[in-house]
Design a protein around this nucleic acid. Sequence first.
DNA 1: CATTAACCGAGACGGTACGTCCTGTCTTAAC
DNA 2: GTTAAGACAGGACGTACCGTCTCGGTTAATG
Lengths: 174, 174, 174, 174
Amino acid sequence: MVGRPRSETSRRAILRAALDLCERDGYQNVTLKGIAQAAGTGRQTVYRWWRTKAEVMIEALTAFVEAPTGSEDLRTFLLETFRLSGGAVGGVIVGLMADAQSDEAFAVRMRGFIDSRRRALHAVLARTLSADVDLELAVDMVFGAMWYRLMNRHAPVDESLADDVTAMLARLSS
Amino acid sequence: MVGRPRSETSRRAILRAALDLCERDGYQNVTLKGIAQAAGTGRQTVYRWWRTKAEVMIEALTAFVEAPTGSEDLRTFLLETFRLSGGAVGGVIVGLMADAQSDEAFAVRMRGFIDSRRRALHAVLARTLSADVDLELAVDMVFGAMWYRLMNRHAPVDESLADDVTAMLARLSS
Amino acid sequence: MVGRPRSETSRRAILRAALDLCERDGYQNVTLKGIAQAAGTGRQTVYRWWRTKAEVMIEALTAFVEAPTGSEDLRTFLLETFRLSGGAVGGVIVGLMADAQSDEAFAVRMRGFIDSRRRALHAVLARTLSADVDLELAVDMVFGAMWYRLMNRHAPVDESLADDVTAMLARLSS
Amino acid sequence: MVGRPRSETSRRAILRAALDLCERDGYQNVTLKGIAQAAGTGRQTVYRWWRTKAEVMIEALTAFVEAPTGSEDLRTFLLETFRLSGGAVGGVIVGLMADAQSDEAFAVRMRGFIDSRRRALHAVLARTLSADVDLELAVDMVFGAMWYRLMNRHAPVDESLADDVTAMLARLSS
DNA sequence: CATTAACCGAGACGGTACGTCCTGTCTTAAC
DNA sequence: GTTAAGACAGGACGTACCGTCTCGGTTAATG
């Protein structure tokens, strides 16, 4: 038999509440209880479909945030990427990373999320850099710089970073 | 009057227990209660000297981990740095970063910790790269790559990363 | 149109499961969810026909347990009654009584159940005791002794109780 | 070492709240959560000292309700006993009995509580009835009648019951 | 060398989130 | 229109940790 179908309304309310609370209180201070409450849903409804706060958040990110595809030129790609990672998203993904440290099952899931972004940047760099550059490392350094600034906040992740990184990479192919 | 002096034994037992538990259970799963218990100390003794788990951890890191000074050549510096950040320390600093996201007071403290490492790398790169390279961005990209791998673990932070980064930077000055 | 008729199979399965679970886990630990599951029936099917666990139980009792009629002599009546009230039934009716304490609607229903037994004993005692004995009180004391032992279990509800009560009542008419 | 001593204030507030809520909502509808809340105490403080709602209630009864001693004459003893068992106490002890059905450990504890009352009545009856009456059974029938009425509420537990029981017992010794 | 004040361990305090279970209702497709 | 299935909002369960507090007991510099 079939049973009552899953409520799409509740699902979206939960994902939306997750991001909203994250923006308001910071990832660490968001609780599943709080998400359920804010979404006007029962706590069990959250637990039925997600195991942890991190699972909710990662689905919320994929649901509400569309990533660059890798078909743009380098500077455009970086601009788009950096714009997205500012705001709430940056805080969320840093928190997710922290949770992934102590939950290997989730770390794998997280890696999948990250890899799709890596592949996109990889595609862009493959078209941009000369053939003898270590593309994997280049990806690590570009995204690394972004993450590093997102976390430590010693400098902004903005247009000028996109320019500077583009310029730096240009030197590699000269 | 002066009263009983602080017990150095307890202090060291707490810092030691903090790192040990972190290695065993992961930063997220360590509790102040657990640290006090493992250190054979009262809970209040921890709270008397530190405000949060993060404060304990960051002091534990500075107490037990001596960092490269920046007087070495680039490859040696990176080797030493990457060796340190592997093992337990990597997990700890990622956890600390996560906590810093939602505690600005602690974020400032954390930034101080990070900046000392940045200055050291900056000094090394200043001696290594040609004068027209954006050193700050270079620091971001090198440490960024390290952090990015520490968090996402799609690739190790090891000797070969040190080699590859050294080679990549060499291209910038050619 | 009339639609699908009520499933007698489900009804009996539910009542049977109710008593079985009661015997296995004790009245307090039985849940409507558990009953439905054990009966292989949907949960709504239970709620459609009964309001509460107590309603199910009381119907299960009346469906599967046939009581003495009051046409026997005193000792036989007591023997039969006490035999019935041992086993699972005792536990069930004590649980029902407890539920009745906080649900007056159900308490009324329960009283009807109890009263039928009271009338039967009353009939027997009317034939047995001399005319000037307070029969209502006598019923209270006889059934009371039984209930008291069922609940507190300081002594069994068995043949020797039937004998002793019979003897005690005999003294009242001497 | 010693640690902070138990708070007598909290203990009394919890026991008091337990009885009050019982009187207001009925034993079945009282929750440990509700007791803690009403007592202005943390939930863990209840769990620290009692395993279940039943344990709290039975201690509340012994703390706030002083029982007849058995030194009175029969009618006085019964009056006192029945007066006590009216009101909230009756509902409480019926609920306790129900819980005891599915928790043997607690049933033992409950039996101890009941036995002290039985011994008192036994002492009274020993002075009142002629020597050849089965005292244990007499206790069962007297307390049984009381319990039976408390639970089923087909008749009150009051002064007239005390009179009637006294009269009934008098016939046994004639 | 006694006083004394800050330290220490232990552990209870009021709170809050956890993850689980059950309640009573609702919504499907199947019969 | 009843059925089995199962999701829904809600709320209590018992546990764990938080950060605070209150104990008795322990140091060492001060007076």
